[in-house]
Write a protein that binds this DNA or RNA. Structure first.
Length: 517
RNA sequence: GCCCCGUUAGUCUAGUCCGGUCAAGAAUGCGGCCCUUUCGAGGCCGUGGCACGGGUUCAAAUCCCGUACGGGGCACCA
């Protein structure tokens, strides 16, 4: 049989097989269902450490946890992981909450790990009593070496009584002298299981608890307990914690605590932007960026200042998903998603960079109305015009004598003279029929009643390993007068220039930050 | 060094557990066309990929072994 014969026979047997199925419009991307989630019974947590300002990576993580709590009609707990008094600062507790609110991520309950010190003490003593933890007085470096070699130190043979009395001693001991270590498994391939420290002395006031406590839990111990006693059902976190699941589950097992379901994903980065506090902090300290809200940074505050919206950040999270590979996204993705969010709500204004004078000889003084948005009804802006205009130097470069162009939304002009920074023209009705207008070059303009505008243009901070010294540039020009009436934080579009966010309104200048085209 | 996780178009992602419907995407980028008094938005079309090498099987992106590359862990940080 030839292929054609086979096909025609098959058509007789099952004609439906050959129908072209209509293309179904598939649903937009959505995060996958959460394993083991029951409606109304999901509890997640947002676990920031109050030691800096959150960046987009934290934002993703916050969003995932928030998203699933909402999706399953559950609860999300904001829990500050503040068990290292040396690193936490009071200002960050509040800053993080502000950033979360701006991100439109709400929480149902707020906690600090440091509120539960008594609980950690109780469980620490439980571990000692069941002989699953011991006080170790070896120095950190020595312990580290032994753990590396899977060897016990002699402290492991301390009796329960020894440990209980050493615990008392530890309460007033110098920092570094004693630690409480779990009896884990020294031969485990998973090095975090090799008798890790659970509690240690930190001789430093805590931003909330002050000097009340000197013995502090380490992350694994506090987290193992908190995730259980707070009723957390699902933990969504990045994979640097992957090896701690075994440890935290083991601790909970010893203490008869319930395990949450843990889901991991890789941390992601934005190309050319440092995406960790570890990398951002030195940039600030060396004044290579202006602060945590520098618009070149992908901190939440940096993104905000640049005009990226919370909705766009949510969309990025949904686009990336809980991926285990290591995504390196390009700014263009953020920009594209952000454009979708702001395009319909951004008023349009005219702005000319590198302004050059345009004189229109037979123009008359008048007030005209321009639409704030070409596609949506957002009202009008009034512009007073005379015969003197400013146009952008870029546009001037393409003009020539005898050319007819359109001052957008105004009228056509015939160019009569082009000099380095001056153009002369006369108003004309030529080429203004609908058909002709389609082909006529249209440029933005600003009347002589205008406002000075400076646009800060954030660029890529890193090119490969190297800092880009020209990552922040400035474009100055004139904008139509109403730009001076905008409010700080507003996002508008300068036509044929790009979207900008108003950063600061000063008496004689409006400072904006360029978001993207 | 040891251990864990990953590798699907330029980028991002679904599929991998339970092999065939996957010559695999609704994203983004790029190219083209349409629309538009913005180089924005919108619409349509196109471009382009299963890291590599073996094996198992009638059949492998999917299972097994190995290699390479990337990330993470081995803190009295989180």
């Amino acid at each position: 049989m030839s292929n054609n014969e086979i096909e025609s026979n098959l058509k007789k047997i099952n004609p439906e097989f050959f129908f072209d199925k209509p293309k179904e419009k598939e649903a937009p991307r959505e995060l996958p269902p959460l394993e083991g989630a029951e409606m109304g019974n999901v509890v997640t947590r947002l676990p920031p450490e109050p030691n800096g300002y959150p960046h987009i990576g934290h934002g993703m993580s916050f969003y995932f946890n928030y998203y699933y709590a909402k999706k399953y009609d559950g609860k999300v707990i904001l829990r500050f992981d503040d068990t290292n008094p040396k690193k936490e600062k009071l200002e960050y507790y509040d800053a993080i909450k502000q950033d979360l609110k701006w991100l439109k991520i709400n929480w149902d309950e707020e906690r600090n790990m440091s509120d539960d010190m008594d609980l950690y003490y109780k469980y620490a003593l439980d571990l000692i009593r069941i002989s699953k933890a011991y006080i170790c007085n070896c120095d950190a470096e020595y312990v580290s070496k032994l753990r590396y070699d899977s060897k016990d130190c002699s402290c492991i043979s301390n009796s329960v009584q020894d440990n209980l009395s050493l615990w008392k001693e530890m309460e007033s001991a110098d920092e570094g002298r004693f630690s409480l270590r779990l009896r884990g498994d020294m031969s485990s391939k998973n090095t975090v299981m090799r008798d890790p420290t659970m509690m240690r002395v930190v001789d430093h006031p805590h931003p909330i608890q002050g000097d009340k406590y000197r013995i502090w839990p380490v992350y694994d111990f506090a987290c193992a307990i908190e995730d259980s006693v707070l009723g957390v059902t699902h933990v969504l976190r990045s994979n640097e914690f992957a090896l701690r699941i075994e440890l935290q589950d083991y601790i909970r097992g010893l203490l008869n605590l319930r395990n949450p379901k843990i889901i991991e994903y890789s941390r992601f980065t934005v190309k050319g932007a440092p995406t960790s506090k570890r990398l951002i902090r030195p940039l600030i300290e060396k004044h290579l960026v202006s602060g945590w809200d520098d618009p070149r940074l992908v901190t939440i505050r940096g993104l905000k200042r640049r005009g990226i919206t919370p909705e766009a950040i949510h969309m990025v999270a949904e686009e990336i998903g809980l991926s285990k590979s290591e995504p390196v996204i390009d700014w263009s993705l953020i920009e594209s998603l952000n454009r979708k969010v702001i395009d319909s709500t951004s008023d349009r204004y005219y702005f000319v960079s590198d302004p050059k004078i345009l004189e229109v000889s037979n123009a008359k003084c008048q007030t005209i109305q321009l639409k704030r948005h070409p596609d949506y009804d957002r009202g009008f802006r009034n512009v007073d015009i005379s015969g003197k205009f400013f146009i952008s130097g870029n546009d001037l470069a393409d003009l020539y004598k005898g050319q007819i162009i359109r001052l957008k939304d105004l009228y056509n002009i015939l160019i009569t003279d082009v000099q380095d920074d001056l153009v002369k023209a006369t108003r004309t009705d030529e080429k203004s029929s609908k058909d002709e207008l389609l082909k006529v070059k249209k440029i933005q303009w600003v009347s002589d009643k205008n406002v000075k505008v400076s646009v800060t243009v954030p660029g890529i901070l890193y090119e490969g390993e190297d800092i880009n010294p020209n990552s922040l540039t400035k474009v100055v020009g004139y904008g139509e007068k109403d730009i001076g009436l905008l409010k700080e934080g507003e996002i508008v579009q300068f036509e044929r220039f790009g979207f900008v966010r108003v950063d600061k309104i000063e008496p004689n200048e409006v400072a904006v930050i360029f978001a993207h085209k």
